[in-house]
């Protein structure tokens, strides 16, 4: 369980998160949606303890960061490091011994090659695989589906469902609504630094219809495409 109470975060005079309250239960998957700049990544960084903030974030396992698998939307990789070395580094950092990496390479990544030679999707798969193999209890996955091919996306959905079965707490963001509706128990809508709605599974369709609603059509019409 992760509990966020009255979370505020500002960069200088710019207030990004303006009082977030949320509770993420074990064995559930939560989706966070919001427009670009709504504060999703900042929220994730606060949960991970990468940002200073006002408010409190607590968890049943302490410290939270040592049990958290964090996947950035654009993972950073060193030059001249192979896929296997990257996985070993992440597991080593959490004192997790790992054998038979090849057997666990479910995405068929060329683990003996430098990561710099990977495509965008392969890099995302590698970062995800490493975070999964760390043996975390909590997962914060920022845009995990971005850049991943169809087979990878199907596998990722299965992985998320498996994590739920294993009683893990998963928070993901995605701009592809179907990926959230397939995996999440609740979707939190983040607008202008606050959570404006918490939508239960039964109301996902309604939320999607709202998103697809007139506002977006109006915006497209503004382009004046001919």
């Amino acid at each position: 369980m992760i509990k966020i109470v009255d979370l505020h975060k500002s960069y200088g005079s710019k207030s990004v998160l303006k009082g977030i309250n949320a509770e993420f239960q074990s064995g559930k998957t939560y989706g966070i949606i919001g427009e670009n700049g709504a504060g999703k990544t900042t929220l994730f960084r606060c949960i991970a303890g990468l940002e200073r903030f006002d408010g409190t974030i607590t968890s049943d396992l302490q410290p939270l960061k040592n049990h958290l698998g964090l996947l950035f939307a654009e993972p950073y990789f060193f030059d001249k490091i192979t896929g296997e070395e990257y996985i070993r580094l992440l597991c080593y950092a959490r004192h997790k011994k790992i054998d038979n990496i090849a057997d666990k390479n479910i995405f068929d990544l060329p683990l003996c090659q430098y990561v710099t030679t990977y495509s965008t999707g392969m890099k995302k798969k590698l970062a995800l695989l490493a975070v999964l193999l760390q043996g975390n209890e909590y997962f914060v996955l920022d845009e995990p589906y971005n850049g991943i091919d169809i087979n990878g996306s199907i596998a990722l959905t299965e992985i998320l469902l498996k994590l739920k079965d294993l009683n893990k707490t998963v928070i993901i963001s995605s701009h592809i609504f179907s990926t959230l509706s397939d995996t999440c128990d609740e979707i939190l809508v983040l607008r202008n630094g606050i959570i404006t709605e918490t939508v239960q599974r039964a109301d996902f369709q309604k939320l999607e219809d709202e998103i697809k609603g007139s506002r977006i059509k109006d915006l497209v019409n503004k382009l004046g495409l001919e």
Binding site: L50, L70, F72, P75, Y76, F78, A93, R94, H95, Q134
Partner: peptide
């Protein structure tokens, strides 16, 4: 110094 992520991951 490495990217903050590679410091953060260490328990």
């Amino acid at each position: 110094v490495e990217n903050e992520y590679y410091v953060w991951i260490f328990a």
